[in-house]
């Protein structure tokens, strides 16, 4: 167990010294620039757009980190052979995989937390500079704490995507793993359509296939409650709980698969 934490710590240190901090800087600069530009451009009511932009950016930046750094953490080690030194230490391959996953998860949590702080700072600025009429036209308060629900679910989605990236990186090249992960992410957002597809096709076999894929592929649409929190529409606690539980179960399945593959792998 301790070995997992040591690997996680090293992975975290490496990703933090890699390009991850830049994303946070880019995020902060983008938020500030956007809040300024958008208030100039649109007919008032820029709060909603700032919120949309901020939450979408957290999601996209997180995705980029999860995919590219996530894949790098394992397949780069294999490709550059640094894994040789590590795996000949008293550590098992499952510990290595779990440690890498945990390290990236910590990276993402820290990254998302910093972005959340920057996000709320911009909102705080808007809150203090808003006039009473502007405030009256807002669908939800600027500093609405319920926005954290959306951020927690973004984290849940990223945890799942990271596990997908990790699984692919245990057996394919970094580029292929990145493409596969992004492909699965897209599929995960189209997944909801498979349900409808099932109702329009006549062939029972095709319907069964669509249903099977619906349950098998990661379903990422439920993780997106950004629109709801921006409009202050309540998100059911059961939805959040079940979605996070789904993420946990799916992540566990992916990690077990990653371990199973990595365990028997030859390093040429």
């Amino acid at each position: 167990m301790r070995a997992i934490w040591f690997v996680a710590g090293a992975a975290f240190k490496e990703s933090v010294r890699d390009r991850v901090p830049y994303t946070m800087v880019v995020f902060a600069v983008m938020m500030i620039a956007a809040s300024y530009l958008i208030s100039e451009l649109t007919a008032g009511q820029d709060l909603k757009i700032i919120k949309d932009l901020g939450l979408a950016a957290m999601s996209i930046f997180g995705l980029v980190i999860a995919v590219f750094i996530g894949i790098g953490l394992v397949s780069k080690e294999v490709e550059r052979k640094s894994v040789f030194a590590l795996l000949t230490k008293p550590i098992t391959r499952p510990q290595f995989i779990l440690g890498k996953y945990l390290g990236l998860l910590v990276t993402l949590v820290v990254n998302l937390s910093v972005m959340t702080v920057a996000y709320y700072l911009v909102l705080f600025y808007m809150e203090t500079t808003a006039t009473a009429t502007m405030r009256a036209s807002w669908a939800a308060p600027a500093l609405d704490p319920r926005q954290l629900i959306a951020i927690v679910l973004i984290m849940g989605e990223l945890a799942l995507v990271t596990a997908v990236a990790l699984l692919f990186s245990t057996f394919s090249s970094p580029l292929l793993a990145a493409l596969l992960t992004l492909g699965l992410w897209v599929a995960g957002h189209f997944n909801h359509d498979l349900r409808q597809f099932e109702q329009v096709v006549d062939s029972r076999a095709v319907a069964a296939l669509a249903r099977g894929l619906y349950y098998l592929l990661p379903n990422l649409a439920p993780f997106n409650v950004r629109a709801e929190v921006v409009y202050g529409i309540p998100v059911a606690a059961s939805h959040v709980g079940l979605t996070l539980l789904y993420a946990a179960a799916y992540v566990a399945a992916l990690l077990v698969a990653a371990i199973a593959i990595f365990r028997r792998r030859d390093f040429k």
Binding site: R17, T88, T92
Partner: peptide, 20 residues
């Protein structure tokens, strides 16, 4: 794993982490 505690290994043309 117990044996690994008692051995050392140097790979051919080794590479370690750039950022450490």
């Amino acid at each position: 794993t117990g044996v690994r505690q008692r051995i050392g290994f140097l790979a051919e043309n080794p590479y370690y982490y750039d950022y450490l």
